[in-house]
Computed example of a mutant assay.
Amino acid sequence: MASTNLTSIVPWGAWVAFYIYFVGLSAGAFLVSTLANVFEIGMMHRIDRDALFVAIISMAVALLFVWIDLGRMDRMYFPFFWRQLTSALSWEVHAYVAYIGILVTELYFSMRVDLARLATRFGGARGVLYRLLALGRVDTSEASKAFDQRWLKRAGIVGIPLAIFMVHGGTGVLFAVSKARPYWNSGLFPVIFIISALLSGTALVMIIYVLRTRLFDGEAVDPDLLDQLAKLLMGFIIIDAALTAIEALIAFASLHPHEVETWLVVLFGEMSWSFWWFMVGAAGCSPWSCSATDPGVEPRQ
Rank of each mutant, 00 (worst) to 15 (best):
F147T: 07
F175D: 00
M111Y: 10
R121H: 09
R121T: 11
A180N: 03
K153M: 12
F122L: 15
H94L: 04
D114Q: 12
V128D: 13
P79V: 04
H168L: 03
Y99E: 09
I102E: 05
V93W: 06
L162G: 07
A125I: 07
L199P: 01
A155R: 07
R131Q: 09
M111V: 01
F109Y: 15
I194Q: 05
S200F: 06
R72N: 13
I207V: 15
L133F: 11
I157V: 14
L135N: 06
R75K: 14
V177G: 00
D139Q: 10
A119Q: 07
G159I: 00
M73R: 13
F81R: 09
L188W: 10
R83D: 04
R121I: 05
P79Q: 08
T171G: 01
R154W: 11
V97M: 09
L115Y: 05
I194E: 01
A155L: 04
G123I: 08
A143V: 02
S144N: 12
L133C: 06
H94F: 13
G71T: 00
I160M: 13
F147H: 12
S110I: 08
F165T: 01
A88L: 09
W91R: 01
R137N: 15
I160A: 03
M166G: 11
K153G: 14
Y99D: 02
K145W: 03
V97A: 13
S110K: 03
S200Q: 10
S87Y: 01
F147K: 13
R83Q: 10
S178F: 11
S178G: 09
L129D: 05
M73F: 05
L162M: 00
V138M: 04
G127V: 06
L129T: 14
D74V: 10
M111A: 08
L89T: 11
L118H: 08
L199G: 06
L133K: 11
F122P: 10
L198I: 04
V104N: 07
L118E: 14
A197P: 05
T86C: 02
L198V: 05
W184E: 04
P182V: 01
L115N: 08
D148T: 11
S196W: 01
L89H: 06
I192S: 08
R83H: 11
V191D: 03
